[in-house]
């Protein structure tokens, strides 16, 4: 229990406190969930055609890529590190999967690939994604370069490789017939496709890891107080390396599934997704300083963002408004969180 107490302190310097019915994290997560519900009701009342069962379902299903990416980003933020490379990895893994799968004799450079069977092509693309994750870990853990700078670099590196392979556009010809299978497989009705199921499974696994395993607790420890974590014998290097591989692996899966869904490898796919993944994590109450946050909170953060952007579209605001709305949402989330925690822990 004391473990949880220490881990949940955002500032990491609190005195022992009396047992409370609700941890700080649970409080923030429920605040985020309440905000999501309130916004939903407001949107349903004010925005024409907003409250329709299909539309409500789409709030989740349309956003499966960003929610999945949010898992790795959330774990890394909790451990005190950024990952801005996920959008680039989405582009890279999708392009690689397509390139590997394209048949070896095509008419021109963009329609000629490696001729691998689909499963092998996707497996190799995933290895490519993990390589970027390993590069992140190498620079952050071994060279101790700030993660924001490293992952900005690997973001461009990954997207740059994708652009070179696709010569700045996309590859979508000469693909095996089964390449589009996974991304378009309908599981329940037309709206819940296989990638949405993958997202749900990843979410459940992530919540289990976060709440019920030593690995999850160690993530909070390293983020809340790196020095104490090191002194108590936690192998921070190994832990952060695993987290970067995890995040890159999830991003690789997302990229491959998107490539399969569209039957193309497009070098601009996933543009700004790293930004959105960061935004939903922050909206969900993950603290940038590390040691605080939850995957469930991130999920509700994604719902908030989806409601806000879809309501803005419903109100016929120009799409340019989305940048301002995101900025205001993150700002309010951060101010509300620090206000609530400061009040509570006075």
């Amino acid at each position: 229990m004391t473990m949880t107490k220490i881990a949940t302190r955002a500032d990491g310097q609190g005195q022992p406190r009396a047992r409370r019915p609700l941890s700080d994290e649970a409080l923030i997560t429920s605040m985020v969930a309440c905000a999501a519900v309130v916004l939903f009701v407001l949107a349903a009342l004010l925005v024409p055609n907003f409250y329709q069962p299909l539309n409500v379902l789409n709030l989740v299903t349309n956003n499966w890529p960003v929610i999945s990416l949010g898992i790795g980003v959330t774990f890394l933020l909790v451990s005190g590190n950024f990952d801005l490379s996920v959008g680039g990895i989405v582009a890279l893994s999708g392009v690689l999967a397509v390139w590997f799968a394209q048949s070896a004799e095509g008419g021109n450079a963009l329609s000629t690939g490696w001729g691998m069977p689909t499963w092998l092509a996707m497996g190799c693309a995933l290895v490519g994604a993990l390589a970027i994750g390993a590069l992140n870990a190498l620079f952050v853990v071994r060279l101790r370069i700030p993660s924001i700078i490293v992952t900005l670099g690997t973001m461009m590196l990954a997207r740059g490789i994708a652009q070179v392979i696709t010569q700045g556009s996309q590859r979508n010809t000469n693909l095996p017939a089964d390449f589009g299978f996974l991304g378009n497989l309908s599981v329940i009705g037309n709206s819940v496709k296989f990638p949405v199921v993958v997202m749900a499974v990843l979410l459940l696994v992530a919540i289990f890891i976060e709440r019920r395993t030593v690995f999850g607790r160690l993530t909070f420890w390293t983020g809340a107080n790196p020095v104490a974590a090191r002194l108590s014998g936690i192998d921070r290097a190994r832990h952060v390396t695993l987290l970067y591989l995890l995040s890159a692996g999830v991003a690789g899966i997302v990229g491959i599934l998107l490539a399969s869904e569209f039957k193309s490898g497009f070098s601009n796919r996933g543009l700004l997704m790293e930004f959105d993944a960061l935004v939903i994590a922050l909206l969900g109450g993950v603290a940038i300083a590390g040691g605080f946050g939850s995957v469930i909170g991130m999920f509700f953060g994604a719902i908030i963002l989806a409601i806000v952007t879809s309501a803005a579209t419903g109100l016929v605001l120009s799409p340019d408004w989305q940048f301002i709305l995101k900025a205001l949402a993150v700002f309010l989330a951060i101010v509300a969180q620090s206000w609530a925690l400061a009040r509570r822990n006075k």
């Binding site: 101790r144 370069i145 990954a158 740059g160 010569q167």
Partner: peptide, 22 residues
């Protein structure tokens, strides 16, 4: 080289600069 090499080169330069700085 064609223009589509630009992102790759800038990304690699950023990582190289960070590493050499270190």
């Amino acid at each position: 080289v064609p223009a589509y090499y630009q992102t790759l080169v800038i990304g690699a330069a950023l990582l190289a600069a960070a590493a050499s700085n270190h």
